[in-house]
Design a protein around this nucleic acid. Sequence first.
DNA 1: CAAAAGTTGTTCCAAACGGAACAATCTGTC
DNA 2: GACAGATTGTTCCGTTTGGAACAACTTTTG
Lengths: 154, 154
Amino acid sequence: MQEPDPTSIFDTIEFRDSYRMSYLTNAVIVPTYEQIRKDFGIIRAEYHLLMCLAHYPILSAQEVSRLTRRPRNSISRAVHRMLDVGYLDRAPDPNDGRQALLTITPAGRRLHDKISARLADRQEQILAPLTAAERQQLDRILQKLSVHAAALPS
Amino acid sequence: MQEPDPTSIFDTIEFRDSYRMSYLTNAVIVPTYEQIRKDFGIIRAEYHLLMCLAHYPILSAQEVSRLTRRPRNSISRAVHRMLDVGYLDRAPDPNDGRQALLTITPAGRRLHDKISARLADRQEQILAPLTAAERQQLDRILQKLSVHAAALPS
DNA sequence: CAAAAGTTGTTCCAAACGGAACAATCTGTC
DNA sequence: GACAGATTGTTCCGTTTGGAACAACTTTTG
């Protein structure tokens, strides 16, 4: 049996673009998180938590859940692990007894910077075949799509 | 606590584009497969198997694994389920005792068409904010990236 | 042609995942 | 101000996941 062209299958399906985005995500980006897990002992949800807190000084778990669109229990688990290993601080919200305010620790930020550099490297590999103009186009389009998707029902 | 703009976090990270692709995939596309599971009793890996066989008349499990970049044991599981429910046929390869040749049944193809229409609808919702020119750009860029990624080590 | 190396498909297992139910707390309404 | 309804964070639990080992078979090498 001759091996079919491993990419031509993408060309004829109707939902080509979303399939390709899934493909790139699952086949190329997700494995990078697996490598990160081995090297830093941090899984994807945990890194995303640190990432959110590296960009917003204070967040509740619920806000992280909304930002990342991940289920709340996943965030909850990640918070506990990151507290245990000292990458996160948590303080009760004086204005709302239900929620707690999360902040990243200096150690957490250092780890975040290392992992984010790793991810930036990987992205560079992925985008390598694109011209500068194409990169601009892609960036602009994905920005538009993300804003739109954030408002879309799951 | 004021809710931060749920999309602005994307703008400042270094690996913006790959994060956004992951976000679109996991926050918008994956939930569609969850809906498909409820409506058709088929999980993502199983649909991808049918999709491959809807585009290539005969494939081995290993070829499906390479096309989709999913682990072989996931494909193996999917093959068994699809055989059980009659969406797939399997015949031993006369030329190679290790592998089996898979083909989609008419029922499998009918199911595939229904699911693929659903996914096409969902993609349309996702791409709604884009102009025709942007869609062309995105399509071209993702095509380029997928071909490139298929050659990239995981 | 025998032994080593590689490939295919499968099973096993530990980890990750997410929906659902839950207790604690807050908000709105009468 | 009490009570219904919403929200937050957590625990529970069944399902999904993918790495690793494995048996069957094929290919390569000396």
